[in-house]
């Protein structure tokens, strides 16, 4: 056949075909296709309720564990800052200081910026207190002189969050007075708490990473099984001109839905356990005359958890889809 002949015929056919789809229609079709895909994915998940429930439960536990640990660490942090605001500096006065000198030291301390309030315990008072509280009263009676120094208790003016550097500077300044023997602050345990919560944060990240990987694998495996059970469907779709993106889409939505459902279930678990613990925490706080209350996820935490769940779901599905869909070609 002559090439020219073929060309004229091709052009005629192109003109007569007339089955171009308008862009607006295509966009409409695309949108409704996405809606339908989500609906179909949802229906497929609900049609196997037990399987879906188990997958969602595994995802929920894997997401709830690091989230709960994160909340625990955050709450301990909060607790620490509650105590920090009651941090007290103990200023030991040199022994044998004259009462006038102590008075002028008191005035000087009082005038310092960064000092909120202070109280004075004389050496005699301290001894009486010690006798009364320690139970060594009779032993102390044999001492020739009072071994205890006079003490100022300084309450630093602090603002939240606590600036340890600021308190350290204040302590150094007080220490530079000639009459001051030593300055101490009982914050060692707070610092320990700080490093503990810091470590806790790191554990949260490590645990979160490990369990996040678990979620990826669980969803990836679920999607892999789903791909295998829908093999025929995939082949038919490819045969009638479905693109890889079209084939991929329902699986990605399924993964995302699983992740979101898992995150919602995890949020419910966390709220339930907070609810369960809140009354005992309130009781404990009352014993310490504290207004301390457990901190929950909050709106942002909730949205973050659900978003993360969806993202993990999408990621897991993506891994499974990119690994297994390529193998399914019509033969």
């Amino acid at each position: 056949m002559a090439a020219k002949d073929r060309n004229t015929r091709d052009r005629a056919q192109r003109g007569a075909s007339g089955k171009k789809i308008r862009f607006a229609d295509r966009w409409q079709g695309y949108k409704s296709h996405h809606r339908d895909t989500i609906r179909v994915s949802l229906r497929k998940l609900l049609s196997e309720p037990l399987q879906t429930l188990m997958t969602v439960a595994v995802i929920a536990i894997a997401l709830a564990l690091p989230s709960a640990l994160y909340l625990t660490v955050e709450n301990i942090d909060q607790l620490g800052s509650h105590f920090e605001s009651s941090a007290q500096i103990t200023v030991f006065v040199k022994k044998g200081a004259k009462p006038q000198a102590i008075d002028s030291l008191r005035a000087e301390l009082d005038a310092m910026s960064g000092v909120d309030s202070l109280s004075y315990i004389s050496a005699k008072q301290a001894l009486l207190e010690f006798k009364a509280l320690s139970g060594f009263g009779s032993a102390l009676r044999d001492l020739e002189e009072n071994p205890l120094p006079a003490v100022f208790l300084v309450q630093p003016a602090v603002s939240e969050p606590i600036d340890m550097g600021q308190i350290k500077r204040l302590m150094n300044k007080i220490n530079s007075f000639a009459l001051v023997d030593d300055v101490q602050i009982d914050m060692a345990w707070l610092q320990r708490l700080h490093s503990l919560t810091e470590m806790g944060h790191k554990v949260v990240v490590a645990l979160g990473a490990a369990l996040g990987l678990g979620v990826l694998l669980v969803i990836g495996n679920t999607i892999r099984l789903s791909i295998q059970s829908r093999r025929d469907e995939i082949i038919v779709i490819k045969l009638v001109g479905g693109t890889n993106a079209y084939v991929r889409r329902p699986f990605l939505y399924t993964g995302m839905l699983l992740g979101v459902f898992g995150a919602l279930a995890a949020a419910i678990m966390i709220y339930a356990s907070l609810l369960w613990m809140s009354s005992s925490v309130a009781n404990l706080a009352e014993l310490y005359q504290s207004q301390y209350r457990l901190q929950g996820l909050g709106i942002l935490g909730f949205l973050g958890l659900v978003g993360l769940g969806g993202l993990f779901g999408l990621g897991g599905a993506w891994i499974a889809v990119s690994k297994h869909l390529r193998d399914i070609e019509p033969k």
Partner: peptide, 8 residues
């Protein structure tokens, strides 16, 4: 798969 609108 070709993206036709549902009415069509």
């Amino acid at each position: 798969v070709s993206g036709y609108p549902s009415s069509e």
